[in-house]
Design a protein around this nucleic acid. Structure first.
Length: 513
RNA sequence: GGCGAGGUAGCUCAGUUGGUUAGAGCACAGGACUCAUAAGCCUGGGGUCGGCGGUUCGAAUCCGCCCCUCGCUACCA
């Protein structure tokens, strides 16, 4: 069986600066990517920016800039976000790159060849100020003028020549696919939404625009640019060297194992994307996971409420591992979750500082004082010592299962529980009581607890990579040895070399109200 | 309006095919200890499981009605 794994984030539309939603999608994907590598998979983890479309073109014009140069700047802020979030993406794709342009044009040609594209007219009530089309029943007449019921703005009847994709022809094929692949759309509630939506029937999709030019042009008609979503979604293929399907990367990684997305773009990934691929006669990705939104104190973040939480500020104030941990521990993946300073503080202090951080500190300090700063050799383990280690080892298949089902909450709950247990074990075993009367017993306890810390740290590594690396480096485990495999190995600890010093891992957050 | 999900301790949630005193974490209160970031450990209080009615020896769990909350309801991305 090939041990390859392809995971993606959405490519982000850089019309504004990066926000918590971008950070959240990226962090989730990074955790899976890191875990899979730790499991021994050859992982391709992709992120990037989606740069075409009317909005960007207008923004660029407003700023008096060439759209490409404008995008270069915007894209860079997203590229720097990957560094701030400590993402381990293997590539960063931009839809303005040549490799992507080639790939989109090939997809277009395939859709033309399969007969799923036709030229027609798109017409409807259009509001210039809203940049949106409205249906007949969304329009009312007031003082002889047609306006939108929703926004109240003026609408005019417009007709625009457009290429259409025969989405309506894919209803049955899509439903069949959802049915045969129960896990194609997750979580289940999202899957139901999509199925209900598709069951109601699908309209053909307008997939070209003539009202602006910032995009990839339709190969056979220079007046048209390709609809941004057909353009954007194709990035997942461009990055692995499509259209060269004999390319090594393409062969290893397509179909993608999972697209991580926010619930707001579910339809594009769960309906349009598979339909495009079916039409292009390409295999479909295995899974689309739509996560929820991060709210601020239970409210949607907005400028008017003044409750916007900037991930970059939070990271600056509290740290990247702290944010990563919080988002995974406190937010139920798939549901909306809220971030509050109170919960963030509790989470950092309890789980990270007092629990895992202090555990490492108390153990390493004890070893420094009483064991010449070296991990004692494994000798004369008692039942309770063996049990502690064995319980964790036994849980590994279950933990891998949780990751494969995107159940990060259950995963982290179990791993953190090992850390609670470790503190209890250390308390109950009282190594300090054996300092003068039974060195052997003391050494057995210390060896066991360090072994346990090693294992917990490996399991926590995908979530809090920076801190766990520090801990593992303290006990001379190098980055390349951070593997699930090394939890199973006995006698993996280096008992000959003095431990490196470890600074406080997580500073506690003081009350400042 | 239509379709869907859900209402369990102050907060976030677990509760398998109905079966003994309804669970966890956080928050709160008390206790013994000291290796450690005044950390960790132990103990405890607190719930008419949205409301009413029904099926049953027995319902948070099944059925009916009602109340409330949230999501989706097609071309900005």
């Amino acid at each position: 069986m090939a041990k390859n794994f392809y995971i993606t984030t959405p490519i982000y539309y850089p019309s504004g600066k990066p926000h918590m939603g971008h950070a959240y999608s990226s962090i989730i994907a990074d955790i899976f990517a890191r875990f899979k590598r730790m499991e021994g998979y050859n992982v391709m983890f992709l992120t990037g920016t989606d740069e075409h479309g009317q909005k960007i073109q207008k923004e660029a014009e407003k700023n008096n800039k060439d759209p490409k140069l404008f995008c270069d700047e915007l894209s860079e802020t997203f590229r720097s976000l990957t560094k701030i979030l400590k993402l381990t993406n293997n590539d960063f794709i931009r839809t303005t790159e040549t490799r992507h342009n080639k790939s989109v044009k090939e997809i277009w040609k395939r859709l033309v060849k399969s007969g799923d594209i036709y030229l027609d007219k798109y017409s409807g009530w259009y509001s210039v100020s809203d940049e949106a089309y409205y249906d007949d029943d969304e329009i009312e007449e007031k003082e002889g003028k047609k306006i939108s019921k929703i926004s109240g703005s003026l609408v005019e009847w417009v007709e625009e020549e457009s290429y259409f994709f025969k989405l309506s022809a894919f209803q049955k094929k899509l439903l069949d696919h959802y049915n045969k692949n129960q896990e194609f759309i997750l979580p289940k509630s999202r899957r139901n939404e999509v199925i209900k939506f598709v069951e109601k029937g699908l309209k053909d999709l307008s997939i070209s625009r003539t009202s602006f030019s910032w995009g990839i042009t339709v190969p056979e008609n220079k007046k048209h640019v390709i609809y941004v979503w057909l353009d954007a979604l194709t990035n997942y293929l461009s990055a692995i060297n499509f259209p060269n399907i004999d390319d090594e990367k393409y062969k290893l990684f397509w179909p993608a194992d999972i697209h991580i997305i926010g619930k707001d773009i579910l339809r594009f990934h769960a309906i349009y994307w598979p339909a495009f691929l079916l039409a292009a006669n390409l295999p479909l990705p295995k899974k689309v996971f739509g996560h929820g939104w991060i709210l601020s104190d239970d409210k949607k973040m907005s400028k008017s409420l003044g409750n916007i939480l900037d991930p970059i500020e939070i990271i600056r104030d509290y740290g990247i591992d702290q944010l990563r941990y919080y988002l995974i521990k406190e937010v139920s993946l798939g549901n909306d979750g809220s971030i509050s300073m109170e919960n963030l503080k509790n989470c950092i202090n309890n789980d990270l500082a007092n629990n895992y951080g202090n555990l490492c500190q108390r153990v390493f300090a004890f070893i420094k004082k009483n064991c010449d700063n070296k991990i004692p050799k494994k000798v004369d383990l008692k039942e309770s010592d063996i049990l502690l280690i064995q319980n964790l080892k036994n849980s590994i298949p279950k933990l891998i299962g949780f990751i494969n089902k995107q159940n990060l909450n259950e995963y982290i709950r179990i791993v953190v529980n090992f850390s609670f247990e470790a503190n209890k074990y250390f308390n109950d075993s009282e190594p300090w009581a054996f300092k003068n009367k039974d060195r052997n017993r003391m050494n057995a306890i210390l060896h066991t607890i360090v072994e346990h810390i090693k294992n917990i740290s490996i399991l926590l590594y995908p979530i809090i990579p920076i801190s766990t690396k520090k801990v593992l480096n303290t006990i001379h485990i190098s980055d390349k040895d951070i593997l699930i495999e090394n939890i199973k190995k006995d006698n993996f600890l280096n008992c000959k070399t003095e431990l490196k010093s470890l600074d406080i891992l997580f500073k506690k957050i003081e009350n400042d109200n």
